[in-house]
Design a protein around this nucleic acid. Structure first.
Lengths: 353, 353
DNA sequence: ACCTGCCGCTGTACCGGTACAGTCTTTACC
DNA sequence: GGTAAAGACTGTACCGGTACAGCGGCAGGT
C-alpha cells in the first residue's frame, strides 16, 4: 500500500504543480486553500479550477501537519487488544464518549491498541496531538512512551497520586457501597472474582498485588464495607482466571462455588465477570439470588437484561470519555475530575439464606 | 493543544540536536533508529544514551511519514456520527473486525465519522494510507473526497455495479429467505419498517427511492420472496421514522399496528428496528409471535436476548471488517468478496393467526 | 605493491507544505 | 500632489525526517 511514487501512477500533483500551471507562486496556491482573504476571488477560482482539472484535492495533510505542528486528531491508548475492547460494553460506552468528544470538536480519533511485542511502537508513531489513556497499568512501557512524546495526555482511572490530569470515579466508595449493601442483607460469607491470574488467595493478598488503581481501590472499598460487619478480609477467598470476560468469571466462580464453605455472596470486579458467575451458579443449580447473591460493577447494558438482572454500580462510562477529551483540550488549565456513581439494586441480590 | 514551539517549553529536540551533541551527522542518528546495521553498535549505544539524556524519544512520526510516504494507519469512514455507530451492535461488531484486521498487521486505525457541515474535511485531512468505507451512500461528498485523495479504498455494502473493491453479503438472497420463511408460515398481510423518513408508502415506492444499496437489495429480496405467494408488493405498507435505532422502529411500527388492516407479520430492515417493533407490539398488548410475527436483520447480540428472541438474518459483521482490511492491503490484486448469511429462526415468528 | 570489497559514516536533495516578512501596485485622503 | 494605508502576491526559510549516492580507510587476496 506504499505511495512513494508508485511507478504506474502520475508523479504526484502538489502545490507546486498547480502553482506552475496557474503561473503563480506556491504560496498563492497555499493561500487559496487556507487564507482566501490573501488573494483575489478571481485568482482563487482559477486556482481551484486548475486544481480540479489536474486532480489535486488540496494540500497534503501530512505535509500540512508537519508544517503546522498540529494533526487535528487525538489518540486513545487502550490496554486491551481492540478485539477485547469492542467485546466489553463498558469499554464500548467509554469509546463512544471519547468519540463524541472528539467529534464535537471536529477532531479525528486514532485508536492505539495494545499489540503484544510491539509495546510502545504504536504510541511512538501515532499521528496525534494528544492522548487519552484508558486502563493502562501503573507501570507500562506505553506510559513511558506517551510521556516521551511530550504531548498532552489525560489518564482515565489512574491513581490520583500520580502526577497527571485524570478522570476518575470514586471506586473505593462505590465498592464500599456494594459491600455494605450485601452486609445489610445479612451476608457474612463472601467470595471475590477478579480478572487475570495474578491475585493471591485472599482479599488481603490481592490488595497488595493489584496492578491497576481501579482494582486496588475496589478491593479496599470492599474491605471497608465488610470489616465493620466483622468479616475477616484476610480470609475472604479471591478467585481469578485468565482474561476479563464472561468466561473468566465462570471459571473463577467455579472455584468459589465448589468449595465446602460456599459463599452466600459473590462480589465481581465487573459486570462481565458477574455474568460469568451467574452462569456458573446456573450450571450447578444454585439459585440466584435465593441461595447466592451476586454483584457486578459497571452497569453495562446487558446487566439489566441478565437472568436475574444484576445488582451493580452504575458509572458514567460515556461521560468519562467525553470529559477526558475536554480535559485534554483544556491543556494547562485542566483539573482532574471525579464522576459520580450509583448503586443499582436489581434482582441478583437478596437476604442471606 | 498546539505544539508549535510553545514559548514556555524547550525548543524541540530533533535528530539534529542529538547529532550535534554526539558529534555525528543527522543521518547517523537516523540510522541508529532505522538501520542498525549502518553503524557500529558502540556508536549506536552512544546515540541512544544521548537521546535518552536529552529527552528525545525517537524520530518525529509526522516528519517520518512525510518523508517515507506511509502513515502506517488506515481510515474508517462511517456514514454515522460516531455516537450512532457505537450504539449499534452491528456497527460495533464491524468496527471490531476492522480493528482486528488493522491490529493483526500492526496498523493504526483512524475513525472518520460523519460530521454535518464539515462534509469531506475529515476525509481530506485524515493521516492514513487507505480507507474503508462503511455505509456511505451512493452519492456523497465523502465518496468524492476519498477518490480525490488518490488512496486505495474498499467499500463495504456498496453496489456491485460501482467500480471499486467491495465486501458484500447477498442482501437480496437473505431478504428473500426471510420473506419465504414468513410466507411458508402462512402470512399474507405484511408491513415493512425502514429507517429514516424518506421512503414512500409502499414497497414499490421505497424500492425506487432507496439511497443505500443495502436497502434497495433487501427490498427487492422481500418482494421476490412475497410475490410468489400472491402478495402485491405495491400494496405492502412501508413505515419509517427518523433515525435508525430502536425508537425509530417503535414509532414506525406504531403506524402499521394502528391501521385497520393490521399486518400479521412485520419485516424490519435491522434488528434494532425490529426490537422497536417488539416494543410497539408490547405497548398495544399484541402478542408476538402469536398475533404478530416480527423479523429483523443482522443478528446482533441483543437479538437472541430480546423478548421474544428475534428471528433474523445472521451476517458476519466482524468478518466484513477484517476482510475489508485484507482487501485494502492487497492493493491491485484485490477481488471483491461476498460473505455468507444465514436465516436464524427464533421465537418472534410463528404461523399466521 | 596493488586492486577489491566491505564497513562505517556523511552530504545533499528531497518529502509537500506553511509562516512571515517583504515588494510592488493601487486606492484614499488631506 | 504627496503620503499613508490597503491589497495582492512572492521569496525564503523553515517543519523534522529519510533515500541514496558517495567517500575514506582498512583487511584480504594475489
Amino acid at each position: 500500500m506504499t505511495r512513494r511514487r508508485p511507478s504506474h501512477s502520475r508523479p504526484a500533483v502538489t502545490l507546486a504543480t498547480i502553482a506552475e500551471a496557474v503561473g503563480v507562486s506556491r504560496m498563492t496556491v497555499s493561500n487559496a486553500y487556507n487564507r482566501p482573504d490573501q488573494l483575489s476571488p478571481e485568482l482563487r477560482e482559477r486556482v481551484f479550477a486548475v486544481a480540479q482539472e489536474l486532480g489535486y484535492s488540496g494540500p497534503n495533510p501530512v505535509a500540512r501537519t508537519l508544517s503546522r505542528g498540529e494533526t487535528g486528531s487525538i489518540g486513545l491508548v487502550l490496554d486491551y487488544a481492540l478485539t477485547t475492547a469492542f467485546s466489553d460494553g463498558a469499554t464500548v460506552a467509554f469509546l463512544h464518549g471519547v468519540a463524541a468528544g472528539a467529534e464535537a470538536r471536529g477532531l479525528g480519533l486514532s485508536l492505539v491498541p495494545r499489540i503484544d511485542g510491539r509495546h510502545a511502537a504504536l504510541v511512538q508513531s501515532a499521528l496525534v496531538d494528544g492522548f487519552v489513556l484508558y486502563c493502562v497499568p501503573e507501570h507500562d512501557p506505553r506510559m513511558d512512551a506517551v510521556r516521551a512524546r511530550g504531548l498532552p495526555f489525560v489518564g482515565v482511572d489512574f491513581d490520583p497520586a500520580r502526577d497527571l490530569v485524570r478522570v476518575n470515579i470514586d471506586d473505593r466508595g462505590a465498592a464500599r457501597a456494594t459491600a455494605a449493601h450485601l452486609v445489610a442483607l445479612g451476608h457474612r460469607r463472601f467470595g471475590v472474582v477478579l480478572p487475570y491470574e495474578t491475585y493471591g488467595p485472599t482479599g488481603a493478598d490481592a490488595e497488595g498485588r493489584a496492578t491497576h488503581h481501579v482494582e486496588r481501590e475496589r478491593l479496599a472499598g470492599w474491605r471497608e464495607g465488610l470489616e465493620p460487619a466483622g468479616v475477616d478480609w484476610s480470609t475472604v477467598p479471591i478467585a481469578t482466571a485468565a482474561g476479563t470476560g464472561v468466561e473468566t468469571g465462570r471459571l473463577a466462580a467455579a472455584e468459589l462455588l465448589d468449595r465446602a464453605e460456599r459463599p452466600t455472596a459473590i462480589i465481581a470486579l465487573s459486570d462481565a465477570l458477574a455474568m460469568g458467575v451467574l452462569e456458573a451458579a446456573r450450571e450447578r443449580g444454585i439459585a440466584v439470588p435465593h441461595q447466592l447473591s451476586v454483584t457486578g460493577f459497571d452497569d453495562v447494558p446487558e446487566a439489566a437484561l441478565a437472568d436475574p438482572p444484576l445488582t451493580t454500580i452504575r458509572q458514567p462510562h460515556h461521560k468519562k470519555g467525553s470529559e477526558a477529551v475536554r480535559l485534554l483540550l483544556e491543556g494547562e488549565a485542566a483539573q482532574s475530575v471525579v464522576l459520580p456513581t450509583e448503586l443499582v439494586v436489581r434482582a441478583s441480590t437478596s437476604p442471606a439464606p
